[in-house]
Design a protein around this nucleic acid. Structure first.
Lengths: 158, 158
DNA sequence: GTGCTTGCAAACGTTTTGCAGACTC
DNA sequence: GAGTCTGCAAAACGTTTGCAAGCAC
């Protein structure tokens, strides 16, 4: 049984700047603090195509945060990730083994991960939607397609 | 002629008794020890429809093992799960949050898990096969459908 | 001022490791 | 006899918690 999701609000609509997200945070009863701002900045930075795939583990995020604000504590990072998820502006997913990764809700996408070379492939939306449709009609199940990566072997590694 | 355990071998064909699996273990270069036998017995027991869904976390498995053999150490459980996976007779998967779960390879199946009530729904093979086919034709990606559960909300909880 | 949020330290649960001795084949 | 496997102790790892002080609103 997973954590209570009852307090989870709807996911954030596309928000393209840190200040957009902070406005959402405020609108949803959260406060704007400097650790929170830095954490969101780091998540935005990781989402830059040149920088990364847009998802970071909590330790990776903490390291990025420490470049700007060395005093932000690990536990603050975890608590913020939790809170930001409850506010619907961040989502986490499980990519292969190892710790969960976090990303901005507005940028969430489904993943395939190659077990051999570690490559991550973004799943096309059509495929995701089709799976969602089938799970709904056949099982009455409404899937959360971004939460778990699908593992296997990429074209090059088969 | 002992086989290296470093390389993963093909998954085991249907093996319906502990002794069948142990024969496979021997055939693949593993030895038959009493902790190993007890661990497999516990996995078989969990697969009984009346007992459970067929998958246990490592701590759950350790507890079951301790009923029969209190001296089997936690680390032995982990090492055996590792070895048995390498020999292709056990697989693990990630079901929602929390630790990985292990099951007999011959009984592996894909899962949907309800985030609200925790119910686990076995995915119909047709659906799994279709997803596998699409991932292959559209992305050249060969999926391992049993490794990760798909989260969402079951019919009752939507 | 209220009460959300923070830093710190300590603990938690799961998993991995090094080692010497025991056991299977 | 060779090499796998075991129990033990210790540590690594990611994560959570209690608390008193600090800060946003």
């Amino acid at each position: 049984v997973s954590k209570p999701l009852s307090a989870q609000t709807a996911l954030a609509p596309a928000a393209s700047t840190v200040e957009d997200v902070l406005a959402l945070v405020r609108a949803r009863g959260g406060r704007v603090t400097s650790p929170r701002r830095v954490i969101l900045e780091a998540l935005f930075e990781a989402a830059q195509p040149r920088v990364g795939a847009g998802h970071l583990t909590a330790p990776q995020l903490a390291e990025a945060v420490h470049h700007r604000a060395p005093d932000v504590h690990m536990s603050t990072v975890y608590r913020n990730l939790d809170d930001l998820q409850r506010m619907g502006v961040v989502v986490h997913s499980h990519m292969g083994h190892g710790p969960a990764t976090y990303q901005l809700a507005s940028l969430a996408h489904a993943h395939f991960i190659c077990e051999a070379c570690g490559a991550t492939v973004e799943a096309p939306e059509t495929l995701v939607r089709e799976l969602a449709r089938e799970a709904q009609t056949e099982l009455g199940f409404s899937i959360d397609p971004y939460h778990f990566a699908i593992l296997g072997r990429c074209a090059a590694c088969q």
